[in-house]
Design a protein around this nucleic acid. Structure first.
Length: 574
RNA sequence: GCGAUAGUAGUCUAGUGGUAGGACAGUGGCUUCCCAAGCCACUAACUCGGGUUCGAAUCCCGGCUAUCGCACCA
């Protein structure tokens, strides 16, 4: 003992936020259970996320299976790309990435070598661990996806999804009809994803089963301006862009308008979700001073991505933790699924006004062309339609051979056609949130120890909107009917949908402290004045101050406090 | 996964081969009554599996988990 991590995890375990999963049988690294308070807090964070993405942005939530067939992940590239080629030293049994070993001895692009070639490349090198020459080693694939089989007889291979995103892509055509073919549109998913990490060692930060909240926003590639950009145009965020990162400079503060105009952020969509993410993280209780937006360096971002930013949250134990990724993935995913599935995955975008376009149409004289070229005739005719004929005929290339087609074998017509629009393959803007990491960040940033009258007070400064228990209700003493009144108030609050925890055990000070430790933001106490004047005391967790409010106002006041519309400091004494 | 270290009530900890003790927390009661007060009572643990031994929390081996280092981290 101990840094904040130890203290936060100790409290989280003891009070029922997060537990090692299935501890009775021996926990397995990378799996956690959310206890009663943790699960409640997680739901609250998820519903705040929904408020932003589903209600405010209008991107409906869908829910897809966590088991997917092989073709999904062949298309997405996870079957190939998510597999590391590994080998084991025959002398010391240490595991290594085979491509890393090969690159260390001067082979470039070792990542594209076959298993056999990698084994050859590694054989003469020395093991970094035991310094023996490797000799004969077997290079094998280690895929980070959990594999399973679907149905009996294990004919059909399935994978647990490594991200929720693919569901939005495979449902693209139906989504596009749902949104009546109007770009932009988006869909979101909150759910479990799975990655069989080789050795997850960072508690809640690297899990084998984790919760993601992802939005896939499909936009017209030529219109990357967000329709509601004005909402965040003046929103200021500290940006640690490529330039600052490479030169080791501090982050710069910019409005989103500036950042887009200066070309720091690729487009309004990315900037919009970056600002929205900032607002969301602050709302759930991430300390703005311990948060930054870091731009991916060109060599670290996926080859197809135009721009990518991570929201990173600072942890006392882990340093900067990548918590949210916001990327412009272009049309990569839809193109990949279109190719694998044969679906077009495009959206017809009509022009404001249908355009009349003049087109040259080249029509082959099949009566002559057919007998002359026989089997090739169809292909030649198709090529002709695309060709640019000269005065003495047209040259077309079919199957690698050039054919000269004299002018009398086709006619050129000029036609006027009406073009109403184009088929567009949308680009994808993807904000992707790691819910578990957000929860850890919230817990760590909320944790505090302070001295009160020479005694340590442990308190979780959870935002009222994410605190699992929203209000505690106490009788000052357990007699003279105060307890019955307090019980009634608690019941009323519960009827109103407010999570109120009634407690009459022991001394009142102890009850306050118990609630402080789980981050309950407010406590109501029924005392002798309640009977006489119809008021109760409302105590604020952070300041430990109290105001008296009328019993009749309890619901409305708490609702307003919990939603953040009112601050405790602004309450008036009854 | 490799190596080192560790694992005793919910938490912290005492216990070097002879049937586990404390503190805090928790529960019930008394009392006091607005910030972990006091008194009484109670609940509750040797990480798991093998081995050595008449006897193992204690010694040995292995698993699991945690911490640190190495490796891994779309």
């Amino acid at each position: 003992m101990s840094d904040i991590y130890d203290k936060v995890i100790e409290l989280a375990k003891r009070r029922g936020f997060v537990w090692p999963s299935a501890e009775v049988y021996g926990a397995v690294a990378g799996f956690i259970d959310y206890g009663p308070l943790g699960a409640m807090m997680k739901r609250r964070i998820e519903s705040i996320w929904r408020h932003y993405y589903v209600i405010r942005e209008g991107y409906y939530e869908i829910e897809c299976p966590t088991v997917g067939t092989e073709s999904i992940y062949v298309a997405s590239g996870h079957v190939k790309g998510f597999a590391d080629k590994m080998c084991q030293c025959p002398h010391c049994n240490e595991y290594f990435r085979a491509d890393h070993l090969a690159e260390a001895c001067g082979i470039h692009n070792a990542g594209i070598l076959s298993k056999e070639d990698l084994a050859k490349a590694v054989a003469p090198t020395r093991c970094p661990a035991c310094d023996e020459v490797f000799g004969d080693v077997e290079v094998f694939d280690f895929n980070l996806m959990f594999q399973t089989t679907i149905g009996p007889g294990s004919q059909r291979r399935g994978y647990l999804r490594p991200e929720t995103a693919q569901g939005m892509f495979t449902d693209f055509s139906r989504l596009s009809r749902f949104y009546r073919m109007k770009l932009p549109f988006g869909a979101v998913q909150i759910g479990k994803s799975y990655r069989n990490e080789i050795s997850p060692r960072q508690g809640m930060i690297r899990l084998r089963e984790f919760t993601q909240a992802e939005a896939e926003i499909f936009v017209n590639p030529s219109e990357k301006n967000h329709p509601n950009f004005s909402r965040y145009a003046d929103y200021k965020v500290e940006l640690w862009a490529i330039e600052q990162e490479q030169k080791d400079l501090p982050a710069v503060e910019k409005t989103m308008r500036q950042a887009v105009d200066e070309g720091i952020i690729a487009n309004e969509y990315i900037a919009y979700y970056l600002a929205l993410t900032h607002e969301l993280l602050v709302t759930i209780g991430i300390d703005p001073a311990r948060m930054r937006f870091r731009q991916h360096l060109p060599d670290e971002r996926a080859h197809y991505a135009v721009d990518c930013w991570d929201a990173e949250v600072f942890s006392d134990r882990f340093g900067w933790v990548e918590t949210v990724g916001i990327a412009d993935r272009t049309d990569y995913d839809l193109r990949a699924h279109s190719k694998e599935s044969g679906e077009s995955m495009t959206v017809f975008v009509p022009f404001a006004e249908a355009r009349k376009e003049k087109r040259m149409r080249i029509v082959a004289d099949m009566g002559t062309l057919g007998p002359k070229y026989r089997g090739k005739a169809k292909k030649i005719a198709d090529a002709l339609a695309e060709a640019a004929p000269g005065p003495d005929g047209a040259d077309v290339v079919v199957d690698g051979e050039t054919y000269h087609i004299p002018g009398d074998l086709y006619t050129v017509r000029e036609e006027e056609v009406e073009v109403r629009g184009v088929e567009v393959r949308p680009h994808v803007i993807e904000p992707s949130y790691g819910i578990d990491r957000m929860i850890y960040g919230v817990l760590e940033h909320a944790y505090d120890e302070e001295m009160v009258d020479g005694e340590e007070r442990r308190v979780m400064h959870l935002a009222p909107c994410v605190a699992p228990v929203q209000v505690a209700v106490f009788p000052l003493v357990n007699k003279d009917g105060l307890d019955a009144t307090a019980r009634e108030i608690a019941l009323d609050l519960q009827d109103e949908g407010i999570l109120a925890d009634y407690d009459d055990n022991g001394a009142i000070g102890r009850r306050y402290r118990r609630q402080d430790e789980i981050g309950t933001p407010f406590a109501l106490t029924v005392d002798y004045e309640t009977k006489e004047k119809g008021t109760v005391t409302l105590r604020d967790r952070d300041s430990m101050k109290q105001v008296r409010i009328p019993v009749a106002d309890v619901h409305a006041t708490l609702r307003s406090l919990v939603s953040g519309r009112t601050r405790f400091e602004d309450l008036k004494e009854a």
